[in-house]
Design a protein around this nucleic acid. Structure first.
Length: 115
RNA sequence: AUAGUAAGUCAGAUAGUCGCAUGUGUAAACAUGAGGAAAGUCCGGGCACCAUAGGGCAGGAUGCUGGAUAACGUCCAGUGAAGGUGACUUUAAGGAAAGUGCAACAGAAAAUAACCGCAUUGUGUAUACAGUGUAAGGAUGAAAAAGUGAGGUAAGAGCUCACUAAGUAGUAUGGUAACAUAUUACUUGUGUAAACCCCAUUCGGUGCAACACCAGAAAUUAAAUAUAAAGUGGCCCGCUUAUUUUAAGGUAGGUGGCUUGAGCUAUAUAGUAAUAUAUAGCCUAGAUAAAUGACUAUCAAAUACAGAACCCGGCUUAUAGAUUUGCUAAUAUA
Protein backbone atom coordinates (compact mmCIF):
# COMPACT_ATOMS: atom_id res chain seq x y z
CA UNK A 1 0.00 0.00 0.00
CA UNK A 2 2.51 2.55 -1.22
CA UNK A 3 0.14 5.22 -2.45
CA UNK A 4 -2.29 5.04 0.46
CA UNK A 5 -2.67 6.77 3.84
CA UNK A 6 -4.94 5.55 6.60
CA UNK A 7 -7.56 7.86 8.09
CA UNK A 8 -6.99 8.26 11.80
CA UNK A 9 -9.32 10.92 13.19
CA UNK A 10 -12.79 10.16 14.38
CA UNK A 11 -14.32 13.37 12.95
CA UNK A 12 -12.99 12.49 9.47
CA UNK A 13 -14.69 9.12 9.61
CA UNK A 14 -17.93 10.75 10.69
CA UNK A 15 -17.63 13.25 7.84
CA UNK A 16 -17.21 10.42 5.32
CA UNK A 17 -20.18 8.49 6.67
CA UNK A 18 -22.36 11.60 6.37
CA UNK A 19 -21.18 13.01 3.01
CA UNK A 20 -19.80 10.03 1.09
CA UNK A 21 -21.81 8.10 -1.52
CA UNK A 22 -22.16 4.44 -0.68
CA UNK A 23 -22.59 1.20 -2.61
CA UNK A 24 -23.55 -2.10 -1.12
CA UNK A 25 -22.24 -5.54 -2.05
CA UNK A 26 -22.78 -9.00 -0.58
CA UNK A 27 -20.43 -8.53 2.37
CA UNK A 28 -19.17 -4.97 2.17
CA UNK A 29 -20.39 -1.41 2.03
CA UNK A 30 -18.00 1.12 0.50
CA UNK A 31 -18.21 4.90 0.92
CA UNK A 32 -16.42 7.13 -1.62
CA UNK A 33 -15.73 10.86 -1.61
CA UNK A 34 -13.51 12.63 -4.12
CA UNK A 35 -11.02 15.14 -2.80
CA UNK A 36 -8.94 17.55 -4.92
CA UNK A 37 -6.23 17.91 -2.31
CA UNK A 38 -5.12 14.31 -2.77
CA UNK A 39 -2.94 13.88 -5.83
CA UNK A 40 -1.90 10.33 -6.72
CA UNK A 41 -2.86 9.14 -3.21
CA UNK A 42 -5.87 7.45 -1.65
CA UNK A 43 -6.94 7.68 2.01
CA UNK A 44 -8.56 4.57 3.40
CA UNK A 45 -10.33 3.37 6.53
CA UNK A 46 -11.57 -0.11 7.48
CA UNK A 47 -14.52 -0.52 9.87
CA UNK A 48 -15.79 -3.70 11.53
CA UNK A 49 -18.55 -3.17 14.08
CA UNK A 50 -18.51 -4.74 17.50
CA UNK A 51 -21.64 -6.73 16.68
CA UNK A 52 -19.73 -8.81 14.10
CA UNK A 53 -18.04 -11.05 16.63
CA UNK A 54 -15.31 -11.26 19.20
CA UNK A 55 -11.99 -9.53 18.91
CA UNK A 56 -10.25 -12.40 17.18
CA UNK A 57 -12.90 -12.47 14.45
CA UNK A 58 -12.83 -8.70 14.00
CA UNK A 59 -9.06 -8.63 13.75
CA UNK A 60 -9.14 -11.35 11.11
CA UNK A 61 -11.72 -9.53 9.02
CA UNK A 62 -9.71 -6.32 9.18
CA UNK A 63 -6.62 -8.17 7.97
CA UNK A 64 -8.52 -9.78 5.13
CA UNK A 65 -9.82 -6.38 4.01
CA UNK A 66 -6.34 -4.91 4.16
CA UNK A 67 -4.96 -7.81 2.13
CA UNK A 68 -7.69 -7.58 -0.49
CA UNK A 69 -7.27 -3.84 -0.87
CA UNK A 70 -3.51 -4.05 -1.20
CA UNK A 71 -3.94 -6.59 -4.01
CA UNK A 72 -6.36 -4.25 -5.78
CA UNK A 73 -4.48 -1.02 -5.17
CA UNK A 74 -2.62 -0.85 -8.45
CA UNK A 75 -5.88 -1.13 -10.46
CA UNK A 76 -7.73 1.75 -8.74
CA UNK A 77 -8.01 5.46 -9.55
CA UNK A 78 -6.30 7.81 -7.12
CA UNK A 79 -7.52 10.92 -5.33
CA UNK A 80 -10.32 9.48 -3.23
CA UNK A 81 -11.30 9.04 0.39
CA UNK A 82 -12.43 5.43 0.80
CA UNK A 83 -14.23 3.83 3.76
CA UNK A 84 -14.79 0.08 3.69
CA UNK A 85 -17.29 -1.31 6.16
CA UNK A 86 -18.00 -4.99 7.00
CA UNK A 87 -21.79 -5.33 6.98
CA UNK A 88 -22.36 -9.07 6.70
CA UNK A 89 -23.91 -11.11 9.47
CA UNK A 90 -21.75 -14.10 8.53
CA UNK A 91 -20.17 -15.75 11.54
CA UNK A 92 -18.47 -18.68 9.86
CA UNK A 93 -14.88 -18.45 10.90
CA UNK A 94 -13.13 -19.58 7.74
CA UNK A 95 -13.87 -16.82 5.31
CA UNK A 96 -11.38 -16.99 2.49
CA UNK A 97 -9.56 -14.03 1.09
CA UNK A 98 -10.89 -14.67 -2.44
CA UNK A 99 -14.47 -14.01 -1.38
CA UNK A 100 -13.65 -10.59 0.01
CA UNK A 101 -11.48 -9.78 -3.00
CA UNK A 102 -14.23 -10.62 -5.49
CA UNK A 103 -16.83 -8.61 -3.61
CA UNK A 104 -14.59 -5.56 -3.39
CA UNK A 105 -13.68 -5.77 -7.06
CA UNK A 106 -17.35 -5.99 -8.03
CA UNK A 107 -18.22 -2.83 -6.11
CA UNK A 108 -15.33 -0.85 -7.51
CA UNK A 109 -16.39 -1.96 -11.01
CA UNK A 110 -19.92 -0.62 -10.46
CA UNK A 111 -18.54 2.76 -9.42
CA UNK A 112 -16.18 2.83 -12.41
CA UNK A 113 -13.17 3.11 -10.15
CA UNK A 114 -11.07 0.60 -12.06
CA UNK A 115 -8.50 1.93 -14.46
C1' A B 1 -8.71 -55.52 29.70
C1' U B 2 -12.73 -52.69 32.02
C1' A B 3 -14.23 -49.12 35.68
C1' G B 4 -12.25 -45.39 38.63
C1' U B 5 -8.73 -41.87 40.96
C1' A B 6 -4.59 -38.25 41.06
C1' A B 7 -0.88 -35.35 38.50
C1' G B 8 0.39 -33.43 33.97
C1' U B 9 2.23 -32.21 28.56
C1' C B 10 1.22 -30.24 23.48
C1' A B 11 -2.10 -26.29 21.46
C1' G B 12 0.13 -27.42 14.35
C1' A B 13 4.86 -28.50 11.63
C1' U B 14 7.99 -27.98 7.13
C1' A B 15 9.05 -25.51 2.28
C1' G B 16 8.11 -21.47 -1.26
C1' U B 17 6.02 -16.41 -3.07
C1' C B 18 3.96 -11.54 -1.59
C1' G B 19 3.06 -8.09 2.61
C1' C B 20 3.12 -5.42 7.88
C1' A B 21 5.70 -3.66 12.84
C1' U B 22 10.27 -3.04 15.70
C1' G B 23 15.69 -3.17 15.96
C1' U B 24 20.60 -3.03 13.40
C1' G B 25 22.53 -0.91 8.85
C1' U B 26 24.61 4.58 4.09
C1' A B 27 22.06 0.87 1.41
C1' A B 28 20.99 -4.01 -0.09
C1' A B 29 19.62 -7.03 3.55
C1' C B 30 19.39 -9.66 8.20
C1' A B 31 17.14 -10.78 13.10
C1' U B 32 12.76 -10.94 16.10
C1' G B 33 7.28 -10.70 16.42
C1' A B 34 0.47 -13.06 21.00
C1' G B 35 -1.76 -17.07 25.18
C1' G B 36 -2.62 -21.31 28.41
C1' A B 37 -5.74 -18.82 29.69
C1' A B 38 -3.28 -12.70 26.64
C1' A B 39 -10.21 -13.23 28.88
C1' G B 40 -13.21 -11.91 33.63
C1' U B 41 -11.23 -7.50 36.52
C1' C B 42 -12.27 -11.01 41.86
C1' C B 43 -7.81 -10.49 45.47
C1' G B 44 -2.39 -9.07 46.56
C1' G B 45 2.23 -6.33 45.36
C1' G B 46 5.60 -2.95 42.53
C1' C B 47 5.53 2.02 40.34
C1' A B 48 3.33 7.25 40.17
C1' C B 49 0.63 11.30 42.23
C1' C B 50 -2.52 13.54 46.23
C1' A B 51 -2.90 16.81 54.20
C1' U B 52 -9.08 14.47 50.87
C1' A B 53 -2.58 11.18 53.20
C1' G B 54 -2.05 12.72 60.39
C1' G B 55 -5.25 11.07 65.34
C1' G B 56 -10.00 8.84 66.98
C1' C B 57 -14.91 6.71 66.11
C1' A B 58 -17.75 4.27 62.54
C1' G B 59 -17.23 0.78 58.40
C1' G B 60 -14.91 -3.31 55.39
C1' A B 61 -11.95 -7.92 54.97
C1' U B 62 -9.94 -12.41 57.07
C1' G B 63 -10.87 -16.51 60.92
C1' C B 64 -8.01 -24.81 62.99
C1' U B 65 -2.09 -25.39 63.36
C1' G B 66 2.90 -24.85 61.42
C1' G B 67 5.71 -23.27 57.20
C1' A B 68 6.58 -20.46 52.19
C1' U B 69 6.39 -15.53 50.01
C1' A B 70 7.49 -8.73 48.17
C1' A B 71 2.37 -9.63 49.51
C1' C B 72 -2.37 -12.13 49.47
C1' G B 73 -8.69 -13.99 50.49
C1' U B 74 -2.71 -17.62 47.34
C1' C B 75 0.45 -22.04 47.88
C1' C B 76 2.70 -26.43 50.74
C1' A B 77 2.54 -29.92 54.88
C1' G B 78 -0.49 -31.51 58.84
C1' U B 79 -4.95 -31.79 62.78
C1' G B 80 -10.32 -32.34 63.45
C1' A B 81 -15.16 -33.27 60.85
C1' A B 82 -18.04 -35.38 56.54
C1' G B 83 -18.26 -38.80 52.10
C1' G B 84 -16.32 -43.28 49.41
C1' U B 85 -15.17 -50.86 49.31
C1' G B 86 -10.65 -48.28 47.94
C1' A B 87 -7.00 -45.02 45.45
C1' C B 88 -8.76 -40.42 47.21
C1' U B 89 -12.09 -36.15 47.69
C1' U B 90 -14.63 -31.96 50.26
C1' U B 91 -14.24 -28.45 54.24
C1' A B 92 -17.85 -20.56 54.68
C1' A B 93 -13.30 -25.19 60.76
C1' G B 94 -12.86 -18.76 66.55
C1' G B 95 -17.00 -17.76 70.42
C1' A B 96 -24.05 -20.15 71.67
C1' A B 97 -21.66 -21.20 79.91
C1' A B 98 -21.23 -12.20 77.72
C1' G B 99 -25.97 -10.27 75.82
C1' U B 100 -30.27 -9.68 72.23
C1' G B 101 -33.16 -11.92 68.43
C1' C B 102 -35.31 -15.97 65.38
C1' A B 103 -37.09 -21.30 64.91
C1' A B 104 -42.43 -21.69 59.02
C1' C B 105 -46.03 -26.03 58.96
C1' A B 106 -47.13 -29.70 62.49
C1' G B 107 -47.32 -30.31 67.71
C1' A B 108 -49.88 -29.75 74.42
C1' A B 109 -45.16 -27.41 74.49
C1' A B 110 -39.53 -24.73 70.35
C1' A B 111 -36.77 -23.49 76.24
C1' U B 112 -39.06 -20.35 83.42
C1' A B 113 -42.43 -27.53 78.86
C1' A B 114 -48.61 -30.75 81.83
C1' C B 115 -52.76 -32.08 75.82
C1' C B 116 -53.64 -37.31 76.68
C1' G B 117 -51.86 -40.55 80.43
C1' C B 118 -50.29 -42.11 85.78
C1' A B 119 -51.01 -41.09 91.11
C1' U B 120 -53.54 -38.49 94.85
C1' U B 121 -56.85 -34.62 97.64
C1' G B 122 -61.77 -32.20 97.92
C1' U B 123 -67.12 -32.11 96.38
C1' G B 124 -70.60 -35.69 94.73
C1' U B 125 -74.49 -41.90 95.06
C1' A B 126 -71.77 -42.18 90.52
C1' U B 127 -69.89 -41.24 85.19
C1' A B 128 -68.04 -36.22 86.47
C1' C B 129 -65.97 -31.29 88.06
C1' A B 130 -62.00 -28.50 90.60
C1' G B 131 -56.96 -28.61 92.63
C1' U B 132 -51.95 -30.81 93.54
C1' G B 133 -47.75 -33.98 92.22
C1' U B 134 -45.38 -36.31 88.07
C1' A B 135 -41.16 -35.90 82.10
C1' A B 136 -42.00 -43.50 82.70
C1' G B 137 -45.41 -44.00 78.02
C1' G B 138 -48.25 -41.54 73.48
C1' A B 139 -48.82 -38.58 68.77
C1' U B 140 -45.82 -33.97 65.83
C1' G B 141 -41.29 -32.31 63.81
C1' A B 142 -35.11 -30.99 60.78
C1' A B 143 -34.61 -30.70 66.20
C1' A B 144 -38.27 -32.77 72.30
C1' A B 145 -34.73 -31.89 77.62
C1' A B 146 -28.34 -38.07 77.68
C1' G B 147 -28.91 -44.17 76.77
C1' U B 148 -29.55 -49.30 79.20
C1' G B 149 -30.42 -51.90 83.76
C1' A B 150 -31.34 -51.91 89.09
C1' G B 151 -32.89 -49.45 93.53
C1' G B 152 -36.53 -46.08 95.07
C1' U B 153 -41.79 -44.00 95.21
C1' A B 154 -48.69 -42.62 96.27
C1' A B 155 -47.27 -42.28 91.06
C1' G B 156 -42.76 -40.80 89.09
C1' A B 157 -38.16 -38.50 88.16
C1' G B 158 -29.87 -38.49 87.44
C1' C B 159 -33.62 -38.70 93.00
C1' U B 160 -29.53 -42.69 93.99
C1' C B 161 -26.14 -46.57 92.05
C1' A B 162 -23.48 -49.51 87.95
C1' C B 163 -21.88 -49.40 82.89
C1' U B 164 -21.87 -46.25 78.53
C1' A B 165 -22.07 -41.23 75.75
C1' A B 166 -21.02 -35.96 75.51
C1' G B 167 -18.98 -31.39 77.52
C1' U B 168 -15.83 -28.11 80.85
C1' A B 169 -11.47 -27.72 83.98
C1' G B 170 -6.89 -29.96 85.80
C1' U B 171 -2.76 -33.63 85.55
C1' A B 172 0.57 -37.13 82.84
C1' U B 173 2.71 -38.95 78.11
C1' G B 174 3.63 -37.96 72.65
C1' G B 175 3.83 -33.74 69.16
C1' U B 176 7.06 -27.03 67.38
C1' A B 177 1.57 -26.62 67.32
C1' A B 178 -3.60 -27.67 65.98
C1' C B 179 -4.45 -32.20 68.52
C1' A B 180 -4.25 -37.48 70.20
C1' U B 181 -4.20 -41.18 74.30
C1' A B 182 -4.80 -42.14 79.57
C1' U B 183 -6.72 -40.41 84.14
C1' U B 184 -9.17 -37.18 88.27
C1' A B 185 -13.10 -33.71 89.56
C1' C B 186 -17.61 -31.36 88.15
C1' U B 187 -21.80 -30.94 84.76
C1' U B 188 -26.05 -32.98 81.32
C1' G B 189 -26.35 -26.51 79.06
C1' U B 190 -31.89 -27.70 71.94
C1' G B 191 -30.37 -25.39 67.19
C1' U B 192 -28.91 -20.92 64.57
C1' A B 193 -23.09 -16.42 64.46
C1' A B 194 -24.23 -17.83 55.18
C1' A B 195 -28.93 -13.20 62.31
C1' C B 196 -27.18 -8.89 65.25
C1' C B 197 -23.08 -9.25 68.19
C1' C B 198 -18.20 -10.47 70.97
C1' C B 199 -12.88 -11.67 70.36
C1' A B 200 -8.17 -11.71 67.45
C1' U B 201 -5.44 -9.93 63.07
C1' U B 202 -5.60 -6.26 59.34
C1' C B 203 -7.12 -2.06 55.79
C1' G B 204 -5.68 6.00 53.41
C1' G B 205 -7.41 7.24 48.21
C1' U B 206 -6.90 7.27 42.84
C1' G B 207 -4.94 4.19 38.60
C1' C B 208 -0.12 4.56 32.92
C1' A B 209 -6.44 8.25 30.22
C1' A B 210 -1.20 7.71 36.71
C1' C B 211 2.82 11.06 36.09
C1' A B 212 6.99 14.19 33.59
C1' C B 213 8.54 17.27 29.42
C1' C B 214 7.82 20.15 24.52
C1' A B 215 4.40 22.89 21.48
C1' G B 216 -0.31 25.05 21.93
C1' A B 217 -4.42 26.79 24.75
C1' A B 218 -5.94 29.41 29.07
C1' A B 219 -4.94 33.18 32.75
C1' U B 220 -10.41 37.54 29.26
C1' U B 221 -15.25 40.17 29.69
C1' A B 222 -20.06 40.96 32.21
C1' A B 223 -23.36 40.08 36.35
C1' A B 224 -24.52 38.19 41.33
C1' U B 225 -23.40 36.60 46.47
C1' A B 226 -20.62 36.04 51.34
C1' U B 227 -16.94 38.87 54.64
C1' A B 228 -15.32 35.02 58.31
C1' A B 229 -16.53 31.91 55.83
C1' A B 230 -15.41 27.89 52.38
C1' G B 231 -13.09 22.94 51.36
C1' U B 232 -12.08 18.27 53.89
C1' G B 233 -14.91 9.93 50.44
C1' G B 234 -19.81 8.77 56.80
C1' C B 235 -18.77 11.86 61.60
C1' C B 236 -15.40 14.59 65.20
C1' C B 237 -10.48 16.67 65.99
C1' G B 238 -6.66 18.40 63.12
C1' C B 239 -5.18 20.51 58.31
C1' U B 240 -5.55 23.94 53.91
C1' U B 241 -7.26 28.58 51.63
C1' A B 242 -8.99 33.50 49.18
C1' U B 243 -12.44 32.30 46.75
C1' U B 244 -17.67 30.72 45.03
C1' U B 245 -21.94 30.86 41.31
C1' U B 246 -24.10 32.17 36.36
C1' A B 247 -23.52 33.74 31.07
C1' A B 248 -20.20 34.58 26.71
C1' G B 249 -15.42 32.87 24.73
C1' G B 250 -12.12 28.49 24.38
C1' U B 251 -9.43 23.00 24.33
C1' A B 252 -8.32 17.84 17.74
C1' G B 253 -0.80 17.33 18.72
C1' G B 254 3.95 14.99 20.04
C1' U B 255 7.96 12.62 23.17
C1' G B 256 9.12 9.90 27.44
C1' G B 257 6.93 6.48 31.07
C1' C B 258 7.61 1.04 27.74
C1' U B 259 10.05 -3.37 28.89
C1' U B 260 16.82 -6.15 32.20
C1' G B 261 12.57 -8.18 35.20
C1' A B 262 10.43 -10.47 42.77
C1' G B 263 13.09 -12.41 34.34
C1' C B 264 14.06 -17.27 31.65
C1' U B 265 17.03 -22.00 30.97
C1' A B 266 20.42 -25.76 32.93
C1' U B 267 23.09 -27.95 37.02
C1' A B 268 24.20 -28.52 42.25
C1' U B 269 22.87 -28.04 47.50
C1' A B 270 19.00 -27.61 51.73
C1' G B 271 13.86 -29.10 52.61
C1' U B 272 8.44 -34.43 52.74
C1' A B 273 6.84 -30.04 49.92
C1' A B 274 5.59 -24.89 48.73
C1' U B 275 10.26 -22.62 48.17
C1' A B 276 15.28 -20.78 49.07
C1' U B 277 20.61 -20.32 47.93
C1' A B 278 24.90 -20.77 44.61
C1' U B 279 27.24 -21.21 39.71
C1' A B 280 26.98 -20.87 34.32
C1' G B 281 24.46 -19.22 30.05
C1' C B 282 20.54 -16.14 27.55
C1' C B 283 17.95 -11.18 26.20
C1' U B 284 12.94 -13.59 24.21
C1' A B 285 6.59 -8.43 21.29
C1' G B 286 6.38 -3.24 22.70
C1' A B 287 2.07 -1.41 18.61
C1' U B 288 -0.86 3.76 19.40
C1' A B 289 -6.48 3.70 15.33
C1' A B 290 -3.09 0.05 16.96
C1' A B 291 2.14 -4.85 13.57
C1' U B 292 2.25 -10.59 14.00
C1' G B 293 -1.28 -11.57 7.70
C1' A B 294 -2.59 -13.83 2.55
C1' C B 295 -1.89 -17.78 -1.05
C1' U B 296 0.21 -22.72 -2.68
C1' A B 297 2.15 -27.80 -1.57
C1' U B 298 2.87 -32.18 1.97
C1' C B 299 1.41 -34.69 6.64
C1' A B 300 -5.56 -38.84 8.00
C1' A B 301 -7.52 -33.73 9.59
C1' A B 302 -5.84 -28.18 10.69
C1' U B 303 -10.81 -27.61 13.36
C1' A B 304 -11.52 -25.82 20.30
C1' C B 305 -11.51 -21.49 23.61
C1' A B 306 -9.56 -17.23 22.22
C1' G B 307 -5.76 -11.40 20.49
C1' A B 308 -0.43 -8.34 24.49
C1' A B 309 -1.88 -2.30 25.57
C1' C B 310 2.48 -0.10 32.62
C1' C B 311 4.54 -4.67 34.95
C1' C B 312 4.46 -9.06 38.22
C1' G B 313 2.08 -13.25 41.95
C1' G B 314 -2.56 -15.77 42.31
C1' C B 315 -7.94 -16.97 41.83
C1' U B 316 -12.23 -17.80 38.59
C1' U B 317 -14.40 -19.04 34.00
C1' A B 318 -13.92 -21.10 28.47
C1' U B 319 -11.48 -25.11 25.68
C1' A B 320 -11.60 -29.42 19.66
C1' G B 321 -8.14 -33.07 19.30
C1' A B 322 -3.70 -35.82 20.65
C1' U B 323 -0.85 -37.94 24.59
C1' U B 324 2.32 -39.56 29.30
C1' U B 325 2.85 -41.41 34.33
C1' G B 326 1.56 -43.13 39.45
C1' C B 327 -2.19 -45.58 42.30
C1' U B 328 -7.09 -48.37 43.58
C1' A B 329 -10.97 -52.24 43.10
C1' A B 330 -16.14 -56.79 47.08
C1' U B 331 -15.19 -56.43 38.84
C1' A B 332 -13.85 -59.88 34.52
C1' U B 333 -10.39 -63.14 31.81
C1' A B 334 -5.89 -65.96 31.64
Amino acid sequence: MKNTITIKKNFEVKYLLAKGKWTRGKYLTIYLKKSEKLQGINRICFIVSKKAGNSVFRNRIRRLLRQAYSDLESKIKKGYNILIMWKSKETTKNIKCDVVYDDMQKIFKEREMLL
